[in-house]
Design a protein around this nucleic acid. Sequence first.
DNA 1: TTGATTTTGTACAATTCGGTACAAGTCAGG
DNA 2: CCTGACTTGTACCGAATTGTACAAAATCAA
Lengths: 205, 205
Amino acid sequence: MNAEKIPDIIIGRLPVYLRALQRMADNGIKTTSSQELGEHVGISAAQIRKDISQFGEFGKQGTGYSITYLLDKLREILKVDRIWDVALIGAGDMGHALARYQGFTNRGFHIVMVFDNNKEKVGRKIDNFVIEDADKMIERLKASNVKIAMLTIPATSAQSVTDKLVQAGVRAILNYAPISLNVPNNVKVQYIDPATHLQRMTYYL
Amino acid sequence: MNAEKIPDIIIGRLPVYLRALQRMADNGIKTTSSQELGEHVGISAAQIRKDISQFGEFGKQGTGYSITYLLDKLREILKVDRIWDVALIGAGDMGHALARYQGFTNRGFHIVMVFDNNKEKVGRKIDNFVIEDADKMIERLKASNVKIAMLTIPATSAQSVTDKLVQAGVRAILNYAPISLNVPNNVKVQYIDPATHLQRMTYYL
DNA sequence: TTGATTTTGTACAATTCGGTACAAGTCAGG
DNA sequence: CCTGACTTGTACCGAATTGTACAAAATCAA
């Protein structure tokens, strides 16, 4: 076990391992090797061994890794051995899709609030969520223990809303708006912008 | 100008620069510096200069970069100085959101087909798109010039559908299914999985 | 015109990251 | 028990990536 600072790039791969392992577990597989896992996720076996060994000796020579054990450890490392409350900001098409997405529950996340600044939408429901008024967002967040927000609003208002989220104590933002966000060092942002992702591939076509 | 192989990591940053520059241009700004652009996108000025200089000397000492000129060059490099036809596979919530997304048009992409394997959905419309039968996907794609697909289907069928896409000549896949895909070397995949992205941040909370 | 200021592109240095190779532990079968 | 096949964790090394620093070019104000 290594108590030093773990590089971001390694942390970034762990959720991919976690996802693949979870899938193997669902298929009833009990054990895997760095080799096999590597083939599933497209990463070299040595890389996987090195990444995992940053956190302890979880494998067994000759046998590989117990999937349930490794799952537990990875969930613990990534702090998804619990359920995080998440706020969804923006009830447009993308917000709707995320609100209705069934893939969060068994991966550590639970949407607890949905906000929109359109007064016509406020009070309406998406499935079980009642859309709340964005004007009340800061006070609602401050009174909650929400540390994670998903931002599905236009780029024009993304930075100002982000500032409010930070002010309200949010520490992690999944940003669907096509714009880079400026946040303090203690706040993390991940970007999802389909056009940007597509543009990362056209170069090679 | 350097004709050598450009690292993936640099190509990955160019769309971010492009997005920021496009935004500046929309705001009527004519010129920028690596310093200013860096502040917008959260990347060091030296890094930006080095990235851009891989492709030529586009800046001017003392002045910086002409935004429209740099935009043209980046679009050319990334091959988004044209419009790419894109196929959308899966007409669920996420597929709907993407089909209706207005952010593709001025960034080089145009959805031209939407498929679903649910016979009840086939023939229905999402805005102007008629949902087509997934059974006809391969032949429809082969008869088209579609090289890019967006996959918004369940993980269980993602690999088999991917194999069909590859067989039909697709060379770039934006995968929304929460699973790693296996593709030949000449096919690129980008992953969008909100739970994975969130899990990349919880470690730091 | 001149000197101060700005900014690029790049050489060089430092750091980070990934691949190779192997000792040592584990297991299955005879 | 013994042998052969597997597999981990890590030391070592080369490659890739980023940071530092500066010469040279361009601009601007006086």
